[in-house]
Every structure is written in structure tokens, then in C-alpha cells.
Amino acid sequence: MTKKELTCIGCPMGCEIEVMLEDDGRIASVTGNTCRRGDVYARKEIEAPRRIVTSTIKVTGSLEGASCVSCKTETDIPKEKIFDVISELKGTSLPCPVKIGDIVLSNAAGTGVDVIATSNVR
């Protein structure tokens, strides 16, 4: 058995989580988390770490003079895909208006996850 220590990023509490791993790498136990989110995070972090990515994307024709709109991946994506998603966003722009929840990039970097707007721009 080996022990792995993690800091949960599920919320700002930052619980210190201990994961016990069997010799074959399977997870034996998850302790130290104070909610279910921590258990889910720890298992994902060991098996295949994922992150929500937030960024901005260029907009055109804004009445309020905005040059970009903030956006996020609708769910978390594999950690190693972060820079691929960012570079796809950099190569894209969209016309105004944009509303919260609008899809600004679908199937970002082949992750199957859409990127959606997180602010309103006229």
C-alpha cells in the first residue's frame, strides 16, 4: 500500500485528502475530505486529472466596445488538454451579442465538452 496526499480543489476549503493505493495502483480508501465532492475529486485526480478551463474569446461588433467575452468549459476536461483548448479559443472570434450560456466553441479540442460564455456582451 502507498499513501498519496492531495489538496482538494473542489471548493475553497482545500481539504487535505489522503488516498491509500493498493500495490496494483487501485484506490483502497479516500479519507480527509469533508464532502462527497472531495471523494470524487481524489479518485479523478489519481486516475485521470481533470480541470475546468476559464478564458476569454474575441468578439466583434460590440455596441459597448467590448473586445472579448469570458468563457468556460461546461464541465471539466482532461488536464493535458488545457493548452489545446486555449489555443483553439485563440483562433476563434464570434459576433455580438453574446449571452451567458451561449456555446462559443463546441467540442473543444476534441474533448466532447463545449465552451460556453460566462458574461453578457452587447
Binding site: C11, I52, T54, S70, K72, I100, T118, S119, N120
Partner: peptide, 10 residues
């Protein structure tokens, strides 16, 4: 739920 700043403000 986990929101971004602009969504929380909205």
C-alpha cells in the same frame, strides 16, 4: 454550484 465571477454577479 460552481460559477465564474461574471456569472455570480449576473
Amino acid at each position: 454550484e460552481e460559477l465564474t465571477g461574471p456569472e455570480y454577479a449576473d
